[in-house]
C-alpha cells in the first residue's frame, strides 16, 4: 500500500493526457538491436476515446506500454499527465501507475484467487483508501458494470464478457486519468465486444477519463474520437474522428 502523495492528473488539467516528443524505443535482444519505435512526437488529448491502430508489429503495444509507464523510452521525452516519466524511480513510477493509470488487458488478467469484488477492491487497497469508502466505491463500480450479483464469483466462474466487465470495473474504480486497453475485445464474441465497448464509452463519458486503445477491431475503431495510425514504429496518420 502507498500514500497518495505523488502528482495527480488534477494538478495539470491544461496539458494533454500523453505527450510524446521524439520518443524512440530500441530493444537489445541478445546483442541484436530492434527498433520498435522510431522518433515519434504527438499528443493524446484528455478525456478522449483514442485508438492506436496499425498492423501487427507496428509498435502499438510498445506505445501503450510506454504510456502505461511499464516500459521506458530509450530516447526522447514522454509526459503522462504532465509528468516526465524518465524523472521517476522504479518505485515512484509504480506509485504513479497506481494513482493515474489503469489497464484493461486482452486476456482480462484478473487475479484468479480473488473474487470479482476483491479484484475490483484491490487497486483501492493499494492506494490506501479507507475500508468504508472502498466498499462503497467497489460496489458502485460492480453495479455500473452490471455484476453486483456476481461479486463473490471467482474469475473461473465468469464468462469472458463478465471477466472483461470486472476488468473494466477494476481499472476505473480508482478513477484514473488514463485507461489503457490493449485489444480489449479480441477475446470476446462480437455481441459481447459491442456491449463492452458501449460500457467503456459510457463510463468514459461519466468519468471523463482518457481512454487509449490499441486495437484491430473495426467495431471498436468506429467509436474512436481520435485515431493514431502507426506503421513501422512511426506515426503515419492522426485523424480526429469526433470534435472534442
Amino acid at each position: 500500500m502507498m500514500a497518495a502523495t505523488s502528482r495527480t492528473p488534477e494538478d495539470d488539467r491544461s496539458g494533454p493526457a500523453v505527450r510524446f516528443r521524439d520518443v524512440g524505443k530500441v530493444y537489445d535482444d541478445d546483442g541484436l538491436r530492434v527498433t520498435a519505435i522510431k522518433s515519434v512526437s504527438f499528443d493524446i488529448p484528455r478525456r478522449r476515446f483514442a485508438m492506436i491502430v496499425g498492423p501487427s508489429g507496428s509498435g502499438k503495444t510498445t506505445l501503450l506500454n510506454l504510456i502505461g509507464c511499464i516500459d521506458t523510452p530509450t530516447s526522447g521525452r514522454l509526459e503522462v499527465c504532465g509528468q516526465d516519466i524518465a524523472a521517476l524511480t522504479d518505485q515512484a513510477l509504480t506509485d504513479f501507475r497506481s494513482q493515474n493509470i489503469a489497464f484493461v488487458f486482452q486476456n482480462f488478467n484478473l487475479l484468479p484467487v480473488l473474487t470479482a469484488y476483491e479484484n475490483v477492491d484491490y487497486p483501492l487497497l493499494l492506494l490506501g483508501v479507507p475500508a468504508r469508502e472502498r466498499r462503497e466505491r467497489t460496489m458502485a463500480m460492480l453495479e455500473s458494470v452490471g455484476l453486483a450479483d456476481k461479486r463473490d464469483h471467482r474469475p473461473n466462474q465468469l464468462s469472458g464478457g463478465q471477466k472483461q466487465r470486472v476488468a473494466i470495473a477494476r481499472a476505473l474504480v480508482k478513477r484514473p486519468a488514463v485507461v489503457l486497453a490493449d485489444e480489449p475485445t479480441a477475446n470476446l464474441d462480437s455481441r459481447t465486444g459491442a456491449e463492452v465497448i458501449l460500457l467503456m464509452r459510457k463510463i468514459q463519458e461519466d468519468t471523463a477519463a482518457s481512454f487509449v486503445f490499441s486495437t484491430h477491431d473495426p467495431q471498436l475503431i468506429s467509436h474512436a474520437d481520435e485515431t493514431f495510425v502507426i506503421r513501422d514504429g512511426e506515426l503515419a496518420e492522426h485523424r480526429i474522428e469526433r470534435a472534442a
Binding site: 509504480t94 506509485d95 497506481s98 487475479l111 487497486p123 492506494l127 477494476r170
Partner: peptide, 9 residues
C-alpha cells in the same frame, strides 16, 4: 498484472 496495477516490487 499486479506490478502494472501499482504493486511495488
Amino acid at each position: 498484472t499486479s506490478r502494472a496495477m501499482g504493486v511495488r516490487r
